[in-house]
Design a protein around this nucleic acid. Structure first.
Lengths: 335, 335
DNA sequence: TTGTACGCGTTATCAA
DNA sequence: TTGATAACGCGTACAA
């Protein structure tokens, strides 16, 4: 007895009907008599039949496959997004293929090639930026592409962005209201569009108040970089009394650096604001004031875009608001 | 101009060869003349051809698809494992389908049904426990199944477990060497096999030294539960001076509860040991002594099991060692 | 409502 | 080495 998958033919033979009857039974809206349906279902059950979606995808134009292209997917914000996306996609009857786009696994381009190999209906990119030629290839093949948090000028994909500039502006005024005057910004030197937008927005908003910003960039967008930046920032002759970190991980590192390495108190000596509002922000050791990524809205808009009824020409860019979440890393003074 | 995927036929026409020649060009080890190969490659490049893995999977017995069944995948340990798995699977030429098995998305059984729909070569379960009937169905269909950290008596799948009992024993002796005598154990009431094994192992090892253990179970295996347990534990007349938490997240909650809610110092007043060794364990606010999940070994063994040359009958259970990682949440005294 | 026959894009087999 | 042809498992137009 060799182990194989059960086919519609097997079920048909067992139920004593034609193979089309089996097909129709599992095709919503097809016309089958109740009796036939019942006999087919019974045979399918005992044999353990499952429709082969791969073969089905060969006939239909849709495969039901959506590719998620992600790098560093064990990062809290990323994994949160991946979880929410798979959840919503499953609800919509789609299935997620997860493509690791970490540098060691080849580029984002290689990942996008895989989406073509498996005839994905769509690709959602949470990381990296694809080559324009590859993007065009995917679009020409009828795929839909969603770019999350990677503002760029490629035409064709749906772009979902956060209003980083506005958030940065809110951060500046929050610091000012808390009585801070020596502002700093902690960034990585990865140069992701959204991170750079936060930096530029912060510097610009501060300039509106006639303030300079100490900008420090270091390493990847992770905890260790934040801690490293704290050491260099608080060793200065004119240390900052407020630091805006481009994401929460860096903020945690900065806070730990300030407290444990430099003996500073938060928010008494330094105020800190982060970005993302990941789980850890609410932990008692941090109580970080931060901007909340509108994960649900991001996911909702992404999945809506994939639905067939959608007019792919109508919308191109969606900009979502990231509201501030007040906690204790900044002295809040009501204006 | 309607958007469609490019087929082998298109390439064949363009290159002026037969479809078989195209197929052979993209089949490693097939015999094609250099000239033909070159012409095919050229045509494929300009047309943007990609082999349809779905159709290929129809012919071959392998689809190259491996399903990852995960719940709460934004948990640090889970996401770390998922990242490592996809990385290694991609290196092995496989592709990962991610199935969300959170309760709201239907059970693990529903997820496993999906793996059948897409003719996955294998399924790797990081969460939940499948019904035996479904497991049998998958195995009968020729699928391979890997169960990670879910010790049970189902026959057929490869089981990869951690030696929780031994780790718990190490935890007890570590506490004793640090001078602790009032031991406690913090668990969730989820009842996952591995978590229960840690609890039982800890209690048994303590009993060997004639010590009782205060066992507290609460909620899910998350931060908030740890913090909640801290409050109830340290309000006792005989509060513990050592707490073993079944995972790091609970340990962080417990530490924060002890420090911020109860005014205790770690490790002076209480020693804490966790399990998993996730990123946050090394953060300055925690410096948690914990057991390191052998993620690389887990992944390596899982992927090796999927390789065709593997004798599926030979190995059934692999037990891996989780070494302790010393940090500052326990006063370490060299014996 | 049912069954027959064809096509989807690929690989395997066979004869040339 | 090459090309024609038969599968693979399915949906669907067509005729019954």
């Amino acid at each position: 007895m060799t182990k194989t998958f059960v086919s519609a033919d097997d079920v048909a033979k067992r139920a004593g009907v034609s193979r089309s009857a089996v097909s129709r039974t599992f095709t919503p809206g097809a016309s089958v008599s109740d009796e036939t349906r019942q006999r087919v279902m019974e045979a399918a059950e005992t044999l353990g039949y499952h429709v082969n979606q791969l073969a089905r995808g060969l006939m239909r134009s849709e495969t039901g496959i959506v590719c998620l292209v992600v790098s560093e997917m064990d990062t809290p914000y990323r994994s949160k997004l991946v979880r929410a996306l798979t959840h919503e996609l499953q609800k919509a009857g789609k299935i997620s293929m997860l493509l690791n786009a970490d540098r060691s696994d080849g580029s984002v381009d290689a990942a996008l090639r895989q989406t073509l190999h498996y005839r994905a209906d769509a690709s959602i990119l949470l990381s990296g930026l694809p080559d324009k030629a590859i993007t065009k290839l995917c679009l020409d093949s009828g795929q839909r592409i969603v770019l999350i948090n990677r503002d760029d000028d490629i035409d064709g994909p749906l772009r979902i962005n956060i209003d980083d500039k506005q958030a940065a502006r809110v951060a500046v005024s929050a610091f000012l209201r808390a009585g801070c005057r020596r502002l700093a910004l902690a960034n990585s030197d990865v140069g992701t569009p959204s991170l750079m937008a936060r930096e530029r927005g912060f510097v610009a908003a501060a300039a509106d108040y006639g303030l300079d910003v100490m900008v420090v960039r270091h390493g990847n967008t992770i905890y260790e970089s934040g801690r490293h930046i704290a050491q260099s920032l608080f060793a200065r002759l004119d240390p900052p009394d407020a630091v805006f970190c481009v994401n929460d991980l860096m903020a945690f590192g900065l806070m730990d650096g300030a407290r444990h390495d430099c003996g500073l108190r938060i928010p008494e000596d330094v105020c800190v604001i982060g970005f993302d509002n990941i789980e850890q922000s609410a932990w008692a050791s941090y109580e970080l004031t931060t901007f909340s990524q509108p994960v649900d809205a991001i996911v909702e808009n992404s999945v809506a875009w994939l639905r067939p009824g959608n007019d792919s020409e109508s919308i191109r860019t969606i900009e979502l608001h990231a509201p501030i979440v007040w906690r204790k890393s900044i002295a809040r003074k009501v204006s």
